[in-house]
């Protein structure tokens, strides 16, 4: 089988090229540090990207725009209940996941009960989550408990702990998608909702589980990111709205749904970080960096799509 026919190869290839282009500047010095940083920062994009991938797999029109708000709200509330006290890390994790679960449930309730288009439902709901986060946070910056901060910034076998979490989650999502009935149902619903329903797939339960999963992943990402960066901030999730969608598409999942690609999400998450650091090390200002990032995203989408047509 032609390895180029695997859609995820593109994002990994692009990440590798950018990695070596960056190292070419330093003639190979700092390779370990760069890889370590990419794994750390890529992990957050990968975790929310995996969630967004599940939602996008549900088919056209399905996307979760409330990821940043869910991240912020989960992180804020989790840090608040932990109150920097040692030994509360697991309780905080539970709270973050529960908040994520709750926002996912609320999103789905709006979509199902009020028949709102998911884009609008998650957008409107995210405004409410944001308000709750502002209200509960009051501008305070609560530090994570020390052992949690150590974990989030620590490493195991040379790989950042947050990346291990992201990898474990990716493996879990891959197994669920490929090996479980639920994963097959999700793919079937994304390919043809009506056919799936007629074939006896409980499509509404599948959709509910998917919207809850993405928000729970967002809660996890928010919890880790806040622990990693020493506290929750109200705009901490902002960049993950576009990033979560971008990693899914660069990763080779079909934006039309019904076809998802777990390894590609990780490749794309590394790529997104590496592009920015490459442009930084080549001395590009913020403006040039953004323009080139955008052009590269579009270039990859065009390259991936023409390849698909030819095959």
């Amino acid at each position: 089988m032609n390895p180029l026919s695997k859609p995820w190869i593109w994002s990994w290839g692009a990440a590798a090229i950018v990695f070596f282009l960056t190292l070419a500047l330093t003639s190979g010095r700092g390779a370990g540090e760069l890889a370590y940083a990419a794994l750390s920062f890529g992990a957050f994009a990968a975790i929310v990207g995996l969630g967004q991938m599940l939602v996008i797999t549900l088919g056209p029109g399905n996307v979760d725009l409330s990821i940043p708000a869910s991240m912020t709200l989960s992180a804020t509330l989790a840090l608040k209940v932990m109150g920097s006290e040692p030994g509360t890390a697991f309780f905080g994790l539970f709270v973050a996941l529960a908040v994520g679960f709750g926002t996912g449930l609320a999103n789905y309730a709006l979509i199902f009960l009020l028949r709102l288009p998911p884009i609008i439902a998650t957008l409107a709901a995210s405004l409410i989550y944001q308000s709750i986060a502002i209200w509960s946070n009051r501008g305070l910056r609560i530090k994570p408990p020390p052992e949690l901060a150590d974990f989030a910034t620590g490493r195991m076998f040379g790989v950042p702990n947050v990346a291990w979490v992201g990898i474990a989650l990716a493996v879990a999502v891959w197994i669920v998608l490929e090996k479980s009935a639920w994963g097959r149902w999700l793919l079937a619903s994304g390919q043809n909702l009506r056919a799936a329903r007629l074939a006896g797939v409980p499509v509404e339960s599948v959709r509910a589980a998917t919207y809850i999963s993405v928000a729970t992943f967002a809660g996890l990402a928010g919890y880790l990111l806040a622990s990693f960066s020493g506290g929750a901030a109200l705009n901490m999730g902002a960049e993950y709205l576009l990033a979560s969608i971008a990693v899914v598409v660069i990763g080779g999942s079909s934006i039309a749904g019904g076809n998802s690609n777990v390894p590609g999400v990780w490749g794309a998450a590394l790529f997104m970080f590496l592009v920015v650091s490459m442009l930084n090390s080549y001395g590009a200002g913020a403006g040039v960096r953004n323009v080139l990032t955008g052009i590269i995203i579009i270039g990859i989408v065009i390259a991936a799509s023409t390849k698909r047509v030819r095959l």
């Binding site: 969608i245 971008a246 995203i297």
Partner: peptide
């Protein structure tokens, strides 16, 4: 999405 980076830049 990609263009939003370009315009912003």
């Amino acid at each position: 999405l990609g263009m939003s980076f370009v315009w912003g830049g």
